[in-house]
């Protein structure tokens, strides 16, 4: 229980921190970038919308603390302002349209990547004599260092343009009407395979190496030797004794890994013009659509924080020591 409270506390603090970073970033930047933005959009959007942007980015004579409180208040009411690119759509609407694509893509890819990476890591640690088991860690040092966006480009080039097996942009064929129907779902899957493969291949190596190292560590422990001497079957030894304990420390590095995977997903989306938050973020940046950009950043941060919180809760269930000690 203490553990849960502790983690909930940390979640709240980090949510607040993300919101605060989001507030101060534009105000800290040199040469007030928002001024030129306002000048550019003068007359193209309504005066009240422009005024809202001025307030949002601190072009006002109100004191900072007042701006900050107003900002927090807006956030709590889900008010992220108006997108300039998609004017008069609100930032919230744009996020609502793009977030599901990213969650689906990143979520599914992460699950596949973690499962595959852990399985290969266990294999690599267990069959230490085999050539494949020995080659895997070295191979993963390479795959882990491939830039996501470059792998995406290679896929687009080879499997998209040269071989023509997969579509190279968007999430579904634009002539189809989104809905729960066969052609649409097939189209979504068809479009999703390359981006998903990109993310899985680029992030697999980290999980593999981490799992393998932990497994190798644990396989050297006395209690494994003892279990072996006691006659515990190999399979049980590998999975129930070694793998279970080796997975636990990985959860602690999940925090950083999830951020990394999300970053990679954003880049992948940009290459594939996949209509998720990454692609929208890039569009917002290209158009200097600061309200949308800030809203997306905050949303991405919040999603990552929540995902991380979920993993920590799971971790607490898996590891009895954490559950009891509350550290």
């Amino acid at each position: 229980m203490k553990y849960v409270l502790n983690r909930v506390g940390f979640l709240l603090i980090s949510l607040w921190a993300a919101a605060t970073i989001n507030f101060f970033l534009p105000r800290m930047m040199p040469g007030n970038p928002v001024d030129s933005l306002i000048a550019r959009f003068q007359g193209r959007i309504s005066g009240s919308a422009l005024h809202a942007i001025e307030l949002q980015f601190g072009i006002t004579h109100q004191p900072l603390w007042f701006q900050y409180l107003a900002y927090l208040n807006h956030l709590l009411h889900g008010n992220f302002g108006v997108s300039l690119t998609y004017y008069p759509a609100s930032v919230m609407t744009v996020i609502g349209n793009s977030l599901p694509w990213t969650l689906g893509l990143a979520g599914l890819s992460t699950v596949i990547s973690v499962a595959l990476g852990l399985a290969l890591g266990i294999y690599s640690a267990w069959h230490r004599k085999g050539w494949l088991a020995n080659a895997l860690p070295t191979m993963s040092t390479f795959t882990a260092a491939i830039p996501f966006f470059w792998l995406a480009m290679i896929f687009v080039y080879l499997l998209g343009y040269l071989l023509g097996w997969f579509p190279t942009d968007h999430a579904y064929t634009s002539s189809l009407v989104p809905g729960i129907n066969g052609p649409f779902i097939l189209s979504v899957l068809h479009h999703g395979i390359l981006p998903a493969c990109t993310i899985v291949i680029s992030s697999l190596g980290g999980w593999l190496m981490n799992m393998r190292n932990n497994m190798v560590q644990i396989l050297g422990e006395d209690y494994i030797l003892f279990a072996q001497a006691k006659g515990v079957p190999d399979r049980a030894l590998m999975l129930r004794y070694a793998a279970r304990n080796a997975i636990l420390p990985i959860a602690t590095s999940f925090a950083m890994s999830i951020g990394f995977v999300v970053g990679g997903t954003l880049l992948t989306e940009i290459v594939f013009s996949y209509p998720g938050v990454g692609y929208q973020l890039f569009t917002a940046i290209e158009n200097s659509d600061y309200p949308l950009m800030q809203g997306l950043f905050l949303m991405i941060a919040v999603s990552v924080l929540l995902a991380n919180f979920a993993v920590e809760m799971l971790y607490g269930r898996l590891d009895p020591r954490v559950r009891r000690s509350g550290v």
């Binding site: 925090a255 999300v262 970053g263 997306l296 990552v304 924080l305």
Partner: peptide, 8 residues
């Protein structure tokens, strides 16, 4: 550590 680095 948990605030995603690349978007930032």
């Amino acid at each position: 550590l948990v605030v995603p680095g690349l978007p930032l």
